[in-house]
Design a binder for these strands. Sequence first.
DNA 1: AGCCCTGTTTTTAC
DNA 2: AGTAAAAACAGGGC
Length: 269
Amino acid sequence: MPELPEIASRSAEMNASLPGKIIQAIEISQPKCLNLPVDEFQSALMGAEIRHVGYRGKWIQVETSQGWLLLNMGMGGELLLLDRSRLPAKYRMIIDFDDSTCLSINFWWFGYVHYVPSDKLSDHTMTAKLGPNVLDLSETEFAERISSQKGKVKAFMLDQTKIAGIGNAYIHDILFLAGIHPLRSLSSLSTEEVHHLYDGIQAGLIPALEKGGAFYEMDLFGQKGSFREEDILIGYHEAKPCPKCGTSIIKIKTGSTSSFICPNCQPEK
DNA sequence: AGCCCTGTTTTTAC
DNA sequence: AGTAAAAACAGGGC
């Protein structure tokens, strides 16, 4: 559930279900995802009561009576609230609560589960240096941030310290909606193009957010997100016709990531 | 069966 | 500053 639509959905679901629960035990099968030794991590959260769940960019922030539990799901995975007797086949960590339910945390590649004391959240660099949540940014603020930067459009949009929440899945449709090539330089963007880019972000993220995230991720109760493959405009649709002009979508390399674009609607220069 | 390639993240080092 | 490599792996193609 790497990007904002999934993270925001999961965060909301967790905030509706977890507050009031008390952590009774923590089982860790992947110590490398922690920022502390296993025993320190466990004792820090043992007996903690969940207070509130929010998010920042791609990080889920769980506030407890004894500090913060910070989750980054890496390249995808599941956060499941279920009965202790019905554990999934795979998990990196199980957090048991006092009511026989538990939170199962799994990610299939690169993820973090960090603990930070209540008053030390600003010392957690990985979240402290994140930019504002992309959907909380006004168009004026967005335009100001762009004008003070140089570099490529895609690199900027994916840089979590600039704006937080967009990843290499939703970016394809966002840039398509804006009609902007990923390798355009920021300095070459007209005022109007910046406006299109801002609108593209809203149009590219909000539908997925409203549908609880993408089909390839599951919600807190194991249900798939309802933002479907057919709801994606051009992302991963290599060789299929562009929904606007019919030109074949192509896949190109943009630095270390791939991009899907309509070469007609998103000219490079 | 087994090898190779790719990839929804993030940080670090050239 | 841009770029590549690394680090908890799984699924698809050949």
